[in-house]
Design a protein around this nucleic acid. Structure first.
Lengths: 221, 221
DNA sequence: TAGATTGTTAATCGATTAACAATC
DNA sequence: TAGATTGTTAATCGATTAACAATC
């Protein structure tokens, strides 16, 4: 029940804790210490305890955490105790691959519930057990299906405009794969995944043979 | 020429600066101030000046930065002044999509030079102008083509084992899309992109209707 | 010169780590 | 009880922001 301002970095670690807890449940491990969670996640045990303390006291002193209790609490914190539906906007190479990936996912906390594209040739086609809708219908479809989040996989040239359509449709969280900084005035949550930027960043770290202006780092990220 | 320890967060911003500078060059803008770069990137002007100062003094007081000079310097810092070659390991849905995306990319600083898979049915098939190689041949092929980085898009169940093969082949930076924490003892650079974790994180931020244990945030990320 | 803007040092802020009392 | 491990407060560390002298 603890509140205060919760750092985004702490929120980002919760799904990682949840994944490990789910693995532990599969292994029939019922109790886990923060030290062992630390070993499995790569974060420090202090950090794990601190992160969890932002949301409440879920463990038992002298004992540890019940894997099932802690997993349930984290699911609830993340809002995954009810199904979260997501739309994929843009049924190109990447969009299609992401839809297939999400449809085949074992966990059913976040599910793709609709796919949209602007290309008249694609509209109406099937993708898994979904039908590709026109982006024009996004407000109606997301409203009807209770979709609150969208994954954006459209070309950079139209990303800003499509993002505005998505936001106008009432979506309030976007996972943006387009290499564009979206400029949305509403206080929407936007998370960016940019392949080029990731690769360019990694390039920095490959040891600088004969390269100046470079400080060699070499830590796991 | 400045050194010292350079924060990873600063390195991660460099490719973003580079992208904006490239756009500015396309618009024939020759000089840019840190204030205008701030407007275009969303970072503060102080932060931009600080980040750049880790690597040297690239601007002119009272004037600003030459877009072409600054772009060239950042490219050099990131090691992009020479072509950086990357392998995509795993030619499934996601791997195939990423290869097509990278092959069609306008910038040619980072290029896909090889694709690998373990499935005998896929080996030998074409993907764009590339041929899918057996993962068994990774050491030989990456050595021959001068490939230093790999994008990992294999099923979670084999990710750890494949990552080890990749590292043994001499690759020293991995962009990992598999939902697995890779455990590699060598000081290799690993960057993780995990769709499930991103979606679960975003779920936290969609306003908590009737949800407890939740602090509403609402900032762009 | 006056105005503008960088490069850099100092102040602030926030997150991580250390330490330990609470307690099972 | 003794041993273990959490939850929480305090200390440390590092990154961001503010301020300003240098200088075009």
């Amino acid at each position: 029940m603890a509140r205060g301002r919760i750092p985004d970095v702490a929120v980002k670690r919760l799904p990682i804790y949840l994944r490990v807890l789910t693995e532990l449940q599969d292994e029939d491990v019922e109790i886990i210490s923060s030290a062992e969670l630390a070993r499995r996640t790569g974060f420090s045990s202090e950090q794990i305890r601190k992160d969890l303390a932002y949301f409440g006291a879920f463990g038992t002193r002298g004992v540890g955490y019940s894997t099932s209790v802690l997993a349930d609490r984290i699911k609830r914190i993340l809002g995954l105790h009810r199904e979260v539906r997501v739309a994929v906007v843009g049924a190109g190479n990447l969009g299609t691959a992401l839809v297939r990936y999400l449809l085949n996912r074992r966990e059913h906390d976040v599910t793709v519930a609709a796919v949209f594209d602007a290309d008249p040739n694609k509209i109406g086609q099937r993708l898994g057990d979904l039908t590709i809708h026109s982006i024009e219908d996004i407000a109606e479809v997301t409203e009807r299906l209770g979709i609150r989040m969208a994954v954006l996989t459209v070309p950079a040239s139209v990303a800003q405009q499509v993002a505005e359509q998505v936001v106008d449709a009432g979506i309030d969280a976007i996972l943006n794969f387009s290499p564009v900084k979206l400029d949305i005035r509403k206080p929407i949550n936007i998370e960016n995944i940019d392949l080029s930027i990731e690769l360019q960043t990694l390039a920095y770290y490959i040891a600088g043979d004969g390269n100046d202006n470079r400080s060699d780092a070499g830590e796991n990220a």
